[in-house]
């Protein structure tokens, strides 16, 4: 095999091509974040200084020089292409600069502090909702399921019609305010420091139950209804009738034939919803004042903390791209009709 052949085989490799595509998405999206604010034609430094000047009475003297100095500091005086080069260089090193509101804390450490909370809460909730919802939907869409399941699951599924933030408010009112079973807000008790101890872990779980319930209850219906629909559609497929004519055990019919085929579109939806995990439930974090990314993003927007916002958007792009990449690479294992091979 010549070097050229090796290159060709790498290029035609499915995973490699998907990875290139993943990088391409990130590049295009981050270029868009760079360009869109600059298309407005406004000078952010000057705008900000003018605003400050108006607040503190008219002090026009030295404003121009100040603006020029700040622009130099932020590198905004350089030609667009140089700015773009610097910006990309920063992104490649995952350097998003300092936070404006919490100066001199860096955007990285701000995001780093909150990412674990969001990931812990939302990724876990998404998986719980996915598994419980999919199993519930599969049972609801299976003609041989006992009837009582209908009476248990159907009322729960109607919760899907309620937005999760409303559900969150109702849960807070009932379980935190009236019954006082759970804390009103926060990720852990005030006046404690995060540490790896049994006591602290219990405290975190205690704080997470209400926000988690509101997210899980509100998204359960989405998964269950999607799965039930696919199960019912599958019932009419020829292969289901043929499989029943083979005299297979119900359990095999259910898992290997009905669920196995119905779950395919569900996994695509799971990947997409995992991609938005970091910003998916901003409102829940805000309502519960949960120390996660959503809350940090909310604060950053309120305080015009541009660098934090930019860092967050980049994180969203990367996670969404990564989730799509993972599903692209794993899907052929799930559905043999989608092949790794090019052109087949």
């Amino acid at each position: 095999m010549t070097f050229r052949d090796i290159l060709a085989s790498i290029y035609t490799n499915y995973v490699f091509r998907r990875f290139l595509f993943f990088l391409l998405i990130i590049w295009i999206a981050s270029t868009a974040i760079f360009l869109i604010p600059r298309l407005s034609g406004q000078d952010p430094v000057k705008e900000k200084l003018l605003l400050e000047a108006q607040r503190g009475g008219h002090m026009q003297a030295g404003l121009e020089e100040m603006a020029a100095e700040y622009s130099r500091k932020f590198g905004l005086d350089k030609p667009l292409i140089v700015q773009y080069g610097n910006y990309m260089a920063d992104l490649v090193r995952f350097d998003f600069g300092p936070s404006i509101a919490y100066f001199p804390k860096s955007v990285n450490s701000l995001i780093g502090d909150s990412v674990i909370w969001t990931f812990g809460l939302l990724a876990v909730c998404t998986f719980i909702a996915f598994f419980v919802g999919t199993i519930a939907g599969a049972l609801l869409g299976w003609p041989k399921s006992p009837n009582f399941l209908q009476y248990i699951f159907m009322p729960i599924l109607t919760l899907a019609a309620i937005p999760y933030y409303l559900l969150a408010l109702v849960l807070i009112y009932i379980f935190a305010f009236n019954l006082d079973w759970f804390p009103l807000f926060g990720g852990y008790a005030v006046a404690t420091l995060p540490e790896w101890s049994f006591r602290f872990t219990f405290d975190v779980i205690h704080h997470a139950i209400l926000p988690a319930s509101s997210i899980v209850l509100a998204s359960l219906g989405f998964w269950a209804l999607g799965m039930r629909g696919m199960m019912v559609t599958n019932q009419g497929e020829d292969f289901m009738i043929a499989a029943e004519a083979k005299g297979l055990r119900s359990i095999r019919l259910f898992f290997n034939y009905a669920v196995r085929n119905a779950v395919l579109p569900q996994t695509t939806a799971l990947a997409l919803s995992l991609g938005t995990v970091f910003t998916g439930s901003v409102l829940v974090e805000v309502i519960f004042r949960y120390p996660g990314l959503g809350n940090t993003l909310y604060q950053a927007i309120k305080l015009n903390d541009f660098f934090v916002i930019r860092g967050m958007i980049f994180i969203v792009i990367v996670t969404l791209g990564l989730a799509t990449f993972i599903i692209d690479v794993t899907y052929p294992l799930l559905d043999p009709r989608v092949s790794y091979k090019k052109g087949s």
């Binding site: 497929e237 020829d238 292969f239 009738i241 043929a242 499989a243 004519a245 083979k246 290997n256 034939y257 196995r260 085929n261 395919l264 799930l334 559905d335 043999p336 009709r337």
Partner: peptide, 16 residues
């Protein structure tokens, strides 16, 4: 009793 099904195009499980 065994069945040779109608519409053979889809009578097999696509993912097995």
């Amino acid at each position: 009793v065994a069945l040779v099904p109608q519409g053979a195009m889809n009578s097999l499980n696509p993912v097995m």
